[in-house]
Write a protein that binds this DNA or RNA. Structure first.
Lengths: 231, 231
DNA sequence: CAGATTGTCTACCACTTGGTAAGTGAACCG
DNA sequence: CGGTTCACTTACCAAGTGGTAGACAATCTG
């Protein structure tokens, strides 16, 4: 009751603008050597933060330790991002862009109907292997709740819209079992991300997550989804 | 890479024994007024810790704050559980018992085949509403990794065994699409727990999680699972 | 009733946390 | 070239963190 209740910070003040715009603290737009170096530093900060937030978790990541990994002082991080919360925001925006690009790319090459879902699932699994921190971050952020989750939800809204529209169209065309697209999306999302990321659960049922078992898992998941969705 | 690697603490020393046995620190077995009071305190500690670990997360929960909520000093908590890690272990054991009892109860009243899955899903949703911290804890622990996740996996093994045996039997009887029971279990687990608990994701697709929408979600999920599993 | 035991509290501790203040030297710009 | 700006550092800090030491009163045990 106390945990997921609405907090005062929920009133989204700082307008989430993923693409460019306010890079660090609206300075650093230059094109000299200095500005380039600064951008490179910020790049490394964002990458390391995403890695740590997405795998170890937000609270479990300390700025000191993050700075240590980067061979930089904590104050450098705080120079680029005025607080830990703001760093999380920046990481979220970055991750949103990455996710959106990945999925749009996967879909642009796909055919119609089931092919699209197949392509999407494949790209999620590729992501789970190559950039596990990205999916982990989405989970972590949704666990953290309000200020952060609102941001990611807002950032990924176009993606969600596209997915829902696709499902609705497929249902209309009679190629997919008819039901509420939003709910189907949630079910499919849970299943895919869960199967792709819940390493510990896999261990619990005696499956050591290697590359080979991952392929098997993906195939099984596709069969599961196909049976669940396709008419 | 650094995050989910095998840590030294992984060598499970302290044999997970959920039921009774070592209550607090192997004292406190008495039956006097004093012992009874102590057990009541420990009870409250465990309940509050499970609540906080399962909703806010392990790292985000401090012993000071936990003690504050209980109207007790931190040292009282550390008297009953020698460290925060050990408190987590105790909470895990307690949660394991609760989960096991819940599911066995749900299944004992259920019929055969699909009815059993139906009963199970209903009990997970009931859990998600009445004791969200329990499912949240499982998630949290599996995120925390090695020492804790090993423990919960070990504790819930009988449940997993039972589920796998059930799926295998259903497949043998030709009532369920044939495939690897372990993988089907993971898919189903991800889907059910995800749909039941991922409040933020629901918000993202525009579903405010109220009691009414929960019922709808459960119905939709059952249809999804039925289509995915039943032949 | 006397003495040991047990549960809880007060008082600390070393250490880490996110964050601030005040520089410093190199790059930029007139 | 000379001053300004910028990226970054060193040096702090107050507020927590998990955990220890020891006192104390209520309870148990003889």
């Amino acid at each position: 009751m106390a945990a997921n209740a609405l907090r005062p910070e929920d009133v989204d003040d700082g307008s989430a603008v993923p693409l460019a715009g306010r890079g660090a603290t609206r300075r650093n737009g230059g094109s000299g050597i200095r500005a380039a170096k600064a951008r490179a530093t910020d790049e490394r900060i964002l990458a390391a933060a995403m890695q740590s937030f997405g795998t170890k978790g937000f609270e479990a990541t300390s700025l000191d330790q993050l700075a240590g990994e980067l061979g930089v002082t904590k104050q450098t991080i705080l120079y680029h991002h005025s607080s830990k919360a703001e760093l999380l925001d920046a990481v979220i925006d970055r991750a949103s862009v990455d996710l959106t690009e990945t999925f749009h790319a996967a879909l642009s090459g796909a055919g119609r109907g089931w092919d699209r879902i197949d392509a999407l699932v494949r790209s999620v699994f590729r992501l789970a292997i190559r950039r596990p921190e990205l999916l982990g971050l989405v989970r972590e952020v949704s666990r953290l709740g309000a200020p952060a989750s609102t941001r990611v939800a807002h950032n990924l809204e176009p993606l969600v819209q596209r997915a829902q529209a696709f499902l609705a169209a497929e249902m209309d065309a009679g190629r997919m079992r008819r039901s509420d697209p939003a709910l189907v999306l949630v079910s499919a999302y849970s299943t895919v991300v869960g199967v792709a990321t819940e390493v510990e659960v896999l261990r619990a049922v005696g499956i050591e997550p290697t590359l080979r078992t991952t392929v098997v898992r993906r195939r099984e998941l596709l069969a599961f989804l196909h049976a669940a969705l396709v008419v």
